Amino acid sequence: MVILGSTGSIGTQALDLVRANPDRFRVVGLTAGGSNRDLFDAQVAEFAPAYAGLGEEASTEAAARTCDVVLNGITGAVGLRPTLAALDAGNTLALANKESLIIGGPLVKERARPGQIVPVDSEHSAIAQSLRAGSAAEVRRLVLTASGGPFRGRTAAELAAVTPEQALAHPNFAMGRVITTNSATLVNKGLEVIEAHLLFDIPFDRIDVVVHPQQLIHSMVEFVDGAVVAQLGLPTMLVPIALGMGWPDRVPDAETPIDWTKAADWRFEPLDDAVFPAVTLARAAGERGGTAPAVYNAANEVAVDAFHDGRLRFPDIVSTVAQVLDLHDVPSREHFTVDDVLAADAWARAEAAALIRRS
């Protein structure tokens, strides 16, 4: 295995699985961004990989090395080049870096052979597992579950007073600042809708989102006969990571199963698109295609930083993304390069920053 982003949440949990299964996994490459150098040095000392390095260039080089699996646990657009490097090298790509698929879109898909990308997002891992129950022709729709975030049930007026500290109080997961805020705005679910479309070749009008606060059902597949197959488990990432590492085989005891001796109530609610328009906006960006998803992602990251710096209100994160998308002209050509995608990313960041300065 090569693990990219080894000091982050995905990377550290993957290394826990390696420790628990030394007869099954061997680390041959480790990379990280460099924000936690002490932890990275300790990981290198413990696992003694043949290659170790810090930064995007190191991750791209590591992803291209001969191995069975590359786990891309990097956060953000910097994961695109490593994703492409892993695919070009013929390595199986366990993909937790959703941004590289979303912004790369067709550029990533045309490089990947069938089955080469294994999703590590819990929702998409759940769908991949559920799809084993039938053929592609038998799938009616995909249903992504969402916790609803910390502001489920709030009105639009109430969201105007949300603080950064409140936005980081996710009810189920402990994640980084951007991803946790994205879960609060539902931008993360919007990104996952685009990701599901790209991973499973299902049209956007056949991908639904339902709010499930307990997050014990990770996502579902509805088949043409009315059957719905779901993957259930505790709200952690261990099963998706383990499956990404060992796909298509399961890793014994990767996670503790649900305790069925305890009573529990599971709730499902429709998504309030009026209060949380991020998913609708993501569908529109995904249907436009081309560089629009890259613009959606980049403008959001700038807006999230501005919100945490006190320069933007919580509801204005998504409205800023919408304004930048309105300004963006997607090139009409069919094929895009990495430079095209990264240029759109840079343009969106600059436009978002300019809009925020004028607000």
Rank of each mutant, 00 (worst) to 15 (best):
A133G: 03
D225N: 13
E192R: 05
A264W: 10
D326H: 06
E195Q: 00
A94V: 07
V251K: 04
V210I: 13
A274V: 12
E61T: 11
T145M: 11
P248I: 11
D265G: 06
Q214L: 01
T337F: 09
W260F: 15
R333W: 13
E301H: 13
E222V: 00
T320W: 13
L327A: 12
S125Q: 07
G290P: 10
G286I: 12
D273I: 02
L232F: 13
D208G: 05
V178P: 00
A352D: 05
V118I: 15
L15N: 00
S125W: 12
D38S: 11
L271M: 15
A128Q: 12
A58Y: 03
V239T: 11
L281P: 04
V209Y: 02
G148W: 14
F276N: 01
T145K: 02
A62K: 03
S135G: 15
G8I: 01
M237V: 08
A62Y: 09
S122E: 11
A285S: 14
A354S: 11
A96H: 03
F276C: 04
G246E: 10
A112D: 09
A299T: 08
V221P: 02
P240C: 11
P240A: 07
F307T: 05
A167M: 11
S147W: 12
S332L: 09
V221F: 05
G115P: 06
S183E: 04
A174F: 04
G226H: 00
R26Y: 04
T155H: 12
I127L: 09
E99W: 14
G148E: 08
A50Y: 09
E269Q: 15
E56W: 06
D316K: 09
S183D: 03
P293L: 07
V251T: 12
R65K: 10
P150Q: 05
V304K: 02
R140G: 00
N172K: 15
G190A: 02
H212C: 01
R206M: 02
S122C: 13
A133P: 01
I258P: 02
R357P: 02
G73D: 01
R113D: 07
E287P: 07
A133L: 06
F40D: 00
A263V: 03
D305A: 15
P248F: 11
A299Q: 13
V295M: 10
